[in-house]
C-alpha cells in the first residue's frame, strides 16, 4: 500500500516531466508536420544555458532567459535552416533536424566537455515539501508538477481560446486561405517553432538540475519523448498528455512489479527450466525491461493504429 502510493506519486511526477518535453514536440508537429529530431537537443541547450545563467545571475533569471534563448535559437533554425530544407520535402526536413541533433551534441561536447556540469537545484527549493511514509518529496518536485500543469493549461487555452490559436490551427489546414486573409503564414510557422523550442528549453531548465546536465542527456531523453508523442498520436495535445502519464506510470510500476513471463507460465502450470527454448528471455522479470516497455508499446500501437492514441491522421 505504502509502495503503491509512493509509486503513483512517482509515476505522476515522471509523466509530467515527460509531458513538458513532449508538449513542445507535439505542438511543432501538429502545426508544421515536422517530426523534430533536434527537440531534445534544445532541451539540452536549455539546461546548459540555465547552468551558465544561474551560476552568474541566479536560477530565477535563468528560468525566464534560458527558454527565451532557446526560442530565439528555434526561430533562427526555422528561418535559416528548416525553411530551406522544406523546399525538398518532409524527408529533407526530418533529416535536417536529425543532422542538427548530431551537431548540437558534438558542439556541446566541445564547449562544456563530456562530463556533467554542476547545475544544481536552487537553495530556495531545496527542502522537503512533505513526506509519504518516510519518503521525502522535495519542493522542487512539487515545482516541476506545478510548472508542467501550468504549461498544459496555457497551451490548451492558447490554441483553443485565442485568436492567435485559431490562426495557427488554420495555417495548417488551409494555409492559402490564411495567407489571403492577410496573415503571414511563414511567420506563423516561425512563431510556432520558436514556441516549441522555448518549451523544450523550459523543460531543460527544470529537468537539467533535477536530473543530470551532460552531453548525452539529449540522446538518452530524445527517444522516450518521441515514443510519447508518437504513442499519443502525432499532433494531439491531449493524446500527448495522456501518453506522458501512461509512460510515466508504466515505467514506475514496471520497477515495482517483480514478475516474469516464466512466473506467469508457472501459474498456468508450465514450468520453465533452463532447457526450455528461450528460457533466458522468459525468465526476465519486468523491472529489467521496464525502460523498454514504452518502445514495445509504441511499436505495437503503430502496428495496430498508426495514428496513435488520439491522433487525427496517420503518421
Amino acid at each position: 500500500m505504502e509502495l503503491l502510493l509512493v509509486s503513483v506519486l512517482n509515476g505522476l511526477l515522471y509523466g509530467m516531466l515527460l509531458f513538458m518535453l513532449a508538449s513542445g514536440l507535439t505542438l511543432i508537429f501538429s502545426i508544421m508536420g515536422v517530426l523534430n529530431f533536434a527537440h531534445a537537443s534544445l532541451y539540452m541547450l536549455g539546461a546548459y544555458f540555465a547552468y551558465e545563467i544561474s551560476r552568474r545571475v541566479g536560477f530565477w533569471v535563468a528560468l525566464v532567459i534560458a527558454p527565451l534563448l532557446c526560442g530565439l535559437l528555434g526561430a533562427l533554425i526555422e528561418t535559416y535552416g528548416l525553411r530551406k530544407a522544406h523546399r525538398h520535402g518532409h524527408v529533407a526536413e526530418l533529416l535536417f533536424t536529425f543532422g542538427l541533433a548530431f551537431i548540437v551534441e558534438k558542439l556541446v561536447l566541445m564547449v562544456w566537455g563530456p562530463t556533467a556540469v554542476p547545475y544544481r537545484v536552487p537553495p530556495e527549493l531545496d527542502f522537503t515539501l512533505f513526506s509519504v511514509y518516510g519518503t521525502h518529496v522535495s519542493a522542487y518536485r512539487g515545482f516541476i508538477l506545478l510548472i508542467s500543469a501550468a504549461m498544459f493549461a496555457a497551451i490548451w487555452l492558447l490554441l483553443t481560446r485565442t485568436r492567435m490559436g485559431f490562426v495557427i490551427q488554420a495555417s495548417l489546414s488551409h494555409p492559402d486561405m490564411v495567407a489571403s486573409l492577410g496573415h503571414n503564414v511563414p511567420r506563423v510557422f516561425t512563431t510556432v517553432f520558436a514556441g516549441g523550442a522555448a518549451l523544450a528549453g523550459l523543460a531543460g531548465v527544470i529537468g537539467g538540475n533535477y536530473l543530470v546536465t551532460e552531453p548525452a542527456m539529449a540522446f538518452s531523453m530524445g527517444p522516450i519523448v518521441f515514443v510519447v508523442v508518437v504513442f499519443g498520436g502525432l499532433g494531439s495535445l491531449a493524446g500527448c498528455f495522456i501518453a506522458s502519464l501512461i509512460m510515466g506510470f508504466v515505467q514506475t510500476f514496471a520497477v515495482v512489479l517483480d514478475i516474469s513471463p516464466a512466473d506467469l507460465l508457472a501459474r498456468l502450470g508450465v514450468a520453465v527450466t533452463p532447457a526450455t527454448p528461450l528460457a533466458e528471455v522468459l525468465r526476465v522479470p519486468l523491472p529489467r525491461i521496464g525502460p523498454f516497455l514504452p518502445f514495445l508499446l509504441m511499436v505495437f500501437m503503430l502496428l495496430v493504429r498508426p495514428r496513435g492514441l488520439l491522433g487525427t491522421r496517420d503518421t
Binding site: 527517444p223 518521441f226 533466458e280 503518421t315
Partner: peptide
Amino acid sequence: RQRATAFAMITFGIGELVTAAATMFQG
C-alpha cells in the same frame, strides 16, 4: 504495412529493442 513517419518510428523502436536484447542476453 506502414510507411512514412510510422515506418521510421517502428524501425527506430525495433533498433532500440534489438540493441537492448543484444546487451541483456548472452546465449
